[in-house]
Design a protein around this nucleic acid. Sequence first.
DNA 1: ATAATAACGAGA
DNA 2: CTCGTTATTATC
Length: 661
Amino acid sequence: MDVPLPHLDRPFDYLVPEALDADARPGVRVKVRFAGQLVDGWLLERAEASEHPKLAYLEKVVSPVPVLSPEVARLARAVADRYAGSLADVLRLAVPPRHARAEKAVTAADAPPSADADADADADADADADADADADARVGGRAEVDPRGWRDYPAGPALLRALTDGKPARAVWSALPGEDWADRYADAVAATVAGGRGAVVVVADARDLDRLDAALTAVLGAGRHVRLTAADGPARRYRAFLTARTGEVDVVVGTRAAMFAPVRRLGLVAIWDDGDDLHAEPRAPYPHARDVLLTRAQLGDVAALVGGYARTAEAQLLVETGWAREVVADRAVVRARTPAMAPTGDDPQLARDPGAASARLPSLAWTTARDALRADLPVLVQVPRRGYVPSVACADCRAPARCPHCAGPLALPSAQGTPACRWCGRVAAAYACPECGGRRLRASVTGARRTAEELGRAFPGVPVRTSGREEVLAGVPGGAGLVIATPGAEPVAEGGYGAVLLLDSWALLTRADLRAGEEALRRWMAAAALARPGTAGGRVVVVADGALAPVQALLRWDSAWFAARELAERRELGFPPAVRMASVTGVAEAVADLLAGARLPGEAEVLGPVPAEEGRERMLVRVPRSRAAAMAEALHAAAGQRSARKAADPVRLQVDPLTLF
DNA sequence: ATAATAACGAGA
DNA sequence: CTCGTTATTATC
């Protein structure tokens, strides 16, 4: 039933009229009369009999195409259960809205639609038998895939072999700097396809998708895979979905819209850069692409690949629990591939170099950039997105406002608030600018454009490009040039950057967020990975204290170490992913009402409340991971009770919310 | 939303 | 004890 009310989150029985018998197959969309009105629904299964005494008739089969595959139906139920949500909510994410014209085009191109649907349903029902038959057929004639770049990782070639053999290998991959991750993912997919199975690969954004798409076309040839992303529009999206559903192709790549893609004989699920927050679905029940894919792997005896330059605490947990094996390069290889890295303070002798002073660059950053440009190599400068951090500057002379006690950056908690130090927390009530004596402050982050202008002046005659929110560059040529980019928008440079400067890093590190360190490291590594190796002159300068753990992890290119540390700390503090948390958000009475009605497991702790957006508050429920299912069920049931008695104020339930504070 | 049903209380 | 009204609950 396509109604999101939690108390109606169960199947209902209907009679199938004679006229609809042929079309009424599991997986089709239907319309039924429910509580007096026509509502949309899903036909989950056919049965001979029903417990229910008085059945109504199915009103209509919307389309005879069984868009919901049995595998995805099972997955959607599991995802709903994990996230304390309703099946209907998950199905809305899993099956794109129908586009009649696209449907007509695809089914007309195929063999007779009904016969095709038959074969398809059978293939799904007998997936295991199918795989066995395939394995037999392959014996002797299996094509080995060249492991290429995977040879740099001791466990790499074995991973590819396992994929071709159809074994449910699970890997957490830490990519080397300079690694062409898209080629490696294409290799993994090719290995899976060589074994006669399909794959689903999820990336964070359109740029990563374009890159992967191209790599797959190069390895598999055209027409063997399909891209599935909401950004391509409803018609293309639905068309791509149907191409996969009918089994025309069995490799689907896309953004998180693809995480539920129906793929025949699925053999591999993969996600790149699982720390990117774009992988978190913003619509109820807020599932995370990594978790959906891992659930899929778990349910279906499917291999899983979780990769990135940086490792998340969640991926580290997979390694530590033994659920997945890590695929990492030896230290010697890491050292050989890593650019030369150095930290530098916001240094006081900044004024000595006239060029550096005008660009407000620490002198080490300035000389590093200058040397790279002289060697006719491109330079990447990573600056935070404007508005990302409300730092504060003197309204008169634009000098950054610093804490009188510790020289940390000041920030304004709100537009009218008193500035406070982001480092030591002291309130600077009577601030006076040490440069000009001004007493007025303005919130500002030097955005990419402003930085570009300043750097252009510091390095006259050098072409300056910016890549950010409005315009994201995919790549830049190899010669001398400056590239100013916000995190996530760094273009790839031909041959690699001669220098990468990571500026304003305090802005990333001092965010009041559980993941601040992890996120800073992830962004730095993504940028540093684009530099040439140190042996080829590549250098990275990070403007941050070299003693800080995330900075250390960057300098040693060891995000596994950092992730292990991070996970240990979260265990200590009782934070995810060491425990399972859920947040309950709404007006105070509604939140209290829901929690009062929830039969939470005995180990559950209820924390809060903390104020949330306008007039609402937020409570957190924490349980050990072993009780996660019980907590989700209790919260879903409590939400059901409330919706059944039509409680007025809505409450938002979120399991594993991305931000906790 | 809306209909069936249970619960309740007043009046006979 | 019955009828009419109102809260509750299920909706195939």
